[in-house]
Computed example of a mutant assay.
Amino acid sequence: MAATQVITSEWTKIRSVASTVWTLSLAAVVTVALGILISVLSKNEFDNMSARDRASFDPTFISFAGMSLGQLAMIVFGVLVVSNEYSTGMIRTSLAAVPQRGTFLFSKIAVATLLAFLVGIVTSFVTFFLGQAMLGSHKASIGDPGVLRAVIGGGLYMTLIAVFSMGVAAMLRSPMLSLGILMPFFFLISNILGNVSATKKVGQYLPDQAGSRIMQVVTPFDDDTPYGPWGGLGIMALWVIAALIGGYAVLRKRDA
């Protein structure tokens, strides 16, 4: 089967599964809604902040506060896109129709990545503009230094989270197992490692900790991270590439 036919087939699969559509919608809604809420709370709290906190106030990053929960839906989307066929048994039919396993996997990931990027970039811009509107006089402008990079980076971050989840799901071949590992990793283990002084240097190189740097415009006073915004996104991209290579290796060697 030609690559274009495989891509068309994968688009049809993703579009026809309600759960994948709902998870993308939820990622956008949660990110925007929570970003607005945190922006409102930050505006009301600004006058009570210390001079040090005001100096490191990052209105752009604050509007992306909802990304921490929005990425939850992106993880679910990435896992379901890849592992749904394993849980239903349809993977055998798919691989019989497309025996070139590399073509099959990367066509699926290409379509899902494009969808995740479109949702992620629109969500990022909407979140930024609505969040800044809530911040009032404390807002940042899209033309300020570093702001456009941060907003575009927000969309790229959401996309890479989804693609990383696709790679992990391709390796584990089970939605429950994939989510059982990814959820604690991003919402518990990563936060602990990144906030405990003894393990902070390790936590800085985890995909979400590194990737989220792209959304920061103002660097906190006590920040000693050895890389910048694009360096952090690059580290996250390396994690994604490693996950995709692992997923392809498993698919190529194991039976459906």
Rank of each mutant, 00 (worst) to 15 (best):
R149W: 04
V119R: 01
S87Y: 02
E10W: 00
W11A: 13
L193M: 14
R149V: 05
L193I: 08
F64C: 09
G155P: 07
R52N: 13
Y205R: 09
L135K: 04
F221M: 12
L156S: 08
S137E: 13
S56H: 12
G35I: 02
V163R: 05
K108E: 04
I36V: 14
Y157F: 15
G194F: 12
M1G: 11
K108Q: 10
R54I: 09
M215S: 15
S141D: 14
R149H: 06
T60Y: 02
N44D: 13
P184H: 06
S63P: 07
S190F: 08
P59F: 02
S87W: 01
V40L: 15
G154W: 00
G211D: 05
F46Y: 15
K201S: 15
V40N: 11
L233V: 06
L193T: 10
Q132W: 03
E85Q: 12
G231N: 11
D255R: 12
V82M: 10
A210L: 10
L24H: 07
G211Y: 03
P99Q: 09
M183C: 01
P59G: 03
L69R: 04
V6H: 00
F128R: 06
V163I: 12
I241K: 01
T103M: 11
L114D: 02
V98K: 03
I38H: 11
G131Y: 11
S197K: 11
T12R: 13
V168Q: 02
M176V: 14
I14E: 04
M166L: 04
F185A: 15
Y157R: 05
G203T: 07
S137F: 03
I121Y: 05
R52Q: 15
T199K: 07
L179S: 01
Y227F: 15
A256V: 09
A96K: 01
A237Y: 07
R54Q: 15
R254F: 07
A27G: 04
T93E: 09
K108G: 03
G35T: 02
S42N: 14
F57E: 08
A2T: 13
M90T: 11
L156Q: 06
F104I: 06
